[in-house]
């Protein structure tokens, strides 16, 4: 099987799922992106990305409890799988490797 690649947004979402641990669900991820990254995010894009990552086997999900804040609706809580962690690690290492190739700033 060909090596799985992640898009930039996919990687972002996957990383946040890993970071948010037990509280990773659509709206929370969207808010987290908005506050931390200072970028406007489309809720539906987050959802679709989550579904796609789940299809690829990097995430798994289950229904969590409902809160009053959500009009009684339950959340779908995502957790990262081993494959997800592996792909994140692989990507990070690949990036670090690449970064090492970039000539460092020299003074003098």
């Amino acid at each position: 099987m060909a090596k799985e690649f992640l898009g930039e947004f996919e990687e972002l979402v996957l990383t946040l799922v890993a970071a948010l641990k037990d509280d990773a669900y659509g709206a929370a991820i969207a808010e987290e992106i908005e506050t931390r990254m200072k970028r406007d995010v489309n809720l539906s894009a987050v959802h679709v990305t989550l579904y796609r990552l789940e299809d690829k086997g990097f995430l798994k999900s289950g229904m969590g409890g409902g809160t009053n804040e959500r009009g009684g609706r339950r959340k779908r809580i995502y957790t990262i799988t081993n494959a997800g962690v592996a792909v994140l690690k692989a990507m990070k290492e690949a990036r670090v490797d690449l970064w090492k190739l970039v000539p460092q700033l020299k003074i003098g």
Binding site: Y25, G26, A27, A30, E31, L43, H47, M63, G66, E69, R70, G71, R73, R74, K75, R76
Partner: peptide
Amino acid sequence: EEIEGDLIQR
């Protein structure tokens, strides 16, 4: 359910 919930929360 999850989408509605997220929309409300947002």
